[in-house]
């Protein structure tokens, strides 16, 4: 353990803890653009700088480990004016037409500009913007909104390990692009959307992103309904409808999802969903009440059970339903119907 003070508050942390983590623990808010918990800190955005007594330079809190006796100040004049300058430098070349931006409300640049009182940049705009790429089925890329925090590139290369996004050129000409200037649709992109999930601005946004503002949605932590990996994710819900999915960090998924988990949620609110019980009458499935349907089910089961015994009935449980439902289904077949003819599609 190491002891240090942050803004005069003493704190003890495990060796190797970064200043940012220690601040989080104390509830001290530190602005960040490039920081992503799942990835090694690379310290490129410089927003999270703090003052460490005895150090000539400002130190980035995301990567600097706490040291014994360290005295950290998170909001000195030097720190605040530096952060303000970083915001101004980014704003100089940022497309500030926020009215049409899907990220409005969740944009970190916007949020910090407000917080640090930056209403305009004193610096000159000098960069031409690269063309938009709206070729993906699921998301849009607008380089004019990019602040080069490189989260997308790092997620694509280091977590998804797909190597679709890369940094092109250098210095002020640096931009995030695809090899050989390909469009997403022509590239090796697997549409996992993890770049979209981590973009702090409106550079990478879901195509459906304009349909909700972040303050309109609630988030519910759940488990992905697709393959057996069991990724953790948050459902974004607006007015009783699932409007988006964000990856969460789970035992099986380091804050990433695949194309199905991230984008294939439309079935939930799909008009084809069954909304009422159906009973086959005159050769056709016709709507029925729950009472009718349930009676019909039990009468059918009872009849066959009486005629041919319980083993004339078989039940297929579901690899898609919950443990509790499968348990109950199994219990129904064994305890209420009286047969061990219960299985599911594990083999299929």
């Amino acid at each position: 353990m190491v002891s240090l003070t942050i803004d005069g508050r003493p704190v003890k942390v495990k060796k190797g803890t970064t200043i940012l983590e220690a601040c989080e623990f104390l509830g001290i808010d530190i602005p960040t653009f490039c920081h992503l918990k799942q990835l090694k800190a690379e310290g490129s955005c410089r927003m999270c700088v703090v003052e460490v007594e005895g150090a000539r330079n400002l130190q980035i809190s995301c990567a600097t480990p706490c040291a014994e006796g360290m005295q950290v100040h998170t909001r000195t004049e030097r720190v605040v004016s530096f952060r303000r300058l970083v915001i101004e430098l980014l704003l100089a070349n940022h497309d500030t037409n926020c009215f049409s931006c899907p990220a409005t409300g969740r944009c970190k640049l916007y949020q910090y500009a407000m917080e640090y009182g930056v209403e305009h940049s004193r610096f000159a705009k000098y960069k031409p913007h690269h063309p938009k790429d709206e070729s993906s089925e699921f998301f849009n890329y607008d380089p004019s909104k990019c602040i080069l925090c490189r989260r997308c590139v790092r997620v694509c290369n280091n977590l998804q390990a797909n190597h679709t996004l890369s940094l092109k050129n250098r210095g002020p000409d640096t931009w995030v692009g695809l090899p050989f200037d390909k469009l997403f649709k022509d590239s090796n992109c697997v549409s996992c959307g993890n770049c979209v999930s981590v973009c702090p601005t409106g550079a990478l946004t879901a195509k459906a992103g304009k349909s909700y503002r972040i303050w309109e949605v609630t988030k519910t932590r759940t488990t992905c309904p697709y393959c057996g990996v069991g990724c953790q994710m948050d459902l974004l819900v607006k007015d009783g409808q699932v409007v988006g999915v964000e990856p969460a960090e789970g035992g099986a998924n380091p804050g990433i999802l695949c194309v199905k988990g991230k984008w294939a949620y439309h079935f939930v609110n799909h008009p084809d969903r069954l909304t009422t019980p159906l009973i086959r009458r005159d050769g056709e499935l016709q709507p029925a009440t729950w009472d009718e349907a349930l009676d019909y089910v039990t009468q059918g089961i009872q009849k066959i059970k009486e005629e041919s015994g319980p083993d004339a009935i078989a039940g297929f449980a579901s690899a898609r339903a919950t443990n509790e439902e499968n348990y109950l289904f199994m219990k129904m077949m064994r305890a209420a119907v009286g047969t061990n003819n219960v299985d599911h599609c594990a083999r299929l």
Partner: peptide, 26 residues
Amino acid sequence: DVVLPAACFAEKDGTFTNTERRVQRI
């Protein structure tokens, strides 16, 4: 002969067990 309309994963509580035997909530 009879179709019963069910709720999907987003509409109910419960648990799934993933391929590494990890029990997680929906």
